[in-house]
């Protein structure tokens, strides 16, 4: 698998303020990649530099080998959903999308626009003025323009922000469909959403890259599992003797955390052995989860 997006030592200054400081990460082709971090972390700035909206103060960005700051370099390669860009209010949606499709040199602009609107579930908005739509509809129309023409790289900044749960779910479904066929970068505050969608992620805080890793590494699914306990005494010393177990501890009276070496023991083996041992010792269980929530990991790191 080749690298679709390569960001090397990128910094961005706004006057004296450093918005992004020496950030580097790579996105593999076909992956869904998350950009996460608290407010002011530099997610949108990094995202905007990837789209060519902002010029980096230092460092290099390559999207499919092209430098976004070179005029026309991203044409046909990237579909973009900017976070706070307003759709031109006086245009009708169909007219607007067809205009943009022509600008992207798509072979059949009207068809491409209609298909994109159908994919986001808004075919009826063709003749509606962009300024007359609700926030949710406008967001989906913006999403439609990003996926229109099936560009190889799709960059989505806060794609579900401000959407009601039902529409947010439909957007997530759409992103899931894009995975594997396109390289997708999603910048979001919604960590549960990113955990569900992304193959890898970069965590930013105060403009710095805290970590860039696969989602499995971020959430520790290859080296950790948790058991939610109802009652009973946990035999911690026995658990620690299981093959591949590195550490077993009670994080609270009802939560057992086990760290293991997946190269010694496969996750399914050690989880099954642990559950069997606990059941044998009369410990009652409420559930088992692999790794830790992304949210917990992010809170620890930032």
């Amino acid at each position: 698998m080749s690298v679709a997006i390569d960001i090397r030592n990128v910094s961005k200054h706004f006057g004296h303020k450093v918005a992004v400081n020496n950030v580097s990460f790579m996105v593999q082709e076909g992956h869904c990649y998350g950009l996460i971090g608290p407010n002011g972390a530099g997610k949108t700035t990094t995202f905007s530099m990837m789209c060519g909206f902002l010029h980096p103060s230092a460092g290099e960005i390559r999207i499919l080998g092209a430098d976004p700051s070179v005029p026309g370099a991203l044409k046909g390669k990237v579909g973009v959903l900017p976070q706070d860009a307003v759709l031109p209010p006086n245009w009708k949606v169909g007219e607007l999308l067809a205009h943009w499709a022509r600008l992207s040199e798509l072979s059949n602009p009207d068809d491409a626009s209609r298909q994109a609107l159908e994919r986001v579930g808004l075919p009826e908005t063709w003749s509606v003025a962009a300024g007359a739509m609700s926030h949710g509809m406008a967001k989906r129309v913006a999403m439609a323009q990003a996926i229109m023409g099936a560009p190889p790289v799709i960059l989505l900044d806060e794609p579900t922000a401000g959407l009601d749960p039902k529409i947010a779910a439909s957007v997530r479904t759409l992103i899931r469909e894009l995975k594997g066929k396109h390289t997708v970068v999603v910048s979001s505050h919604n960590l549960q959403e990113l955990e569900e969608l992304c193959d890898a992620t970069a965590l930013l805080d105060k403009g710095n890259l805290v970590t860039a890793a696969s989602m499995a590494d971020m959430t520790g699914t290859q080296g950790e599992f948790r058991v939610l306990l109802a009652s009973g005494e946990v035999p911690l010393e026995v658990l620690r003797t299981l093959k591949g177990c590195r550490e077993a501890r009670l994080e609270s009276p009802t939560l057992l955390v086990v760290h293991f070496d997946s190269t010694v023991s496969a996750p399914e083996d050690i989880i099954t052995q642990t559950v069997a041992l606990l059941a044998q010792r009369g410990v009652k269980l409420l559930g088992v989860t692999r790794g830790q929530r992304l949210e917990e990991r992010v809170l620890k790191l930032t």
């Binding site: 060519g52 909206f53 026309g72 044409k75 860009a85 759709l87 943009w100 600008l103």
Partner: peptide, 18 residues
């Protein structure tokens, strides 16, 4: 106006600034 409300971003993703 398009720079102000950032709708210009939809255009620069498709066309050169010139």
């Amino acid at each position: 106006s398009e720079i102000g409300n950032r709708s210009v971003r939809y255009l620069v993703a498709r066309a050169r600034r010139s």
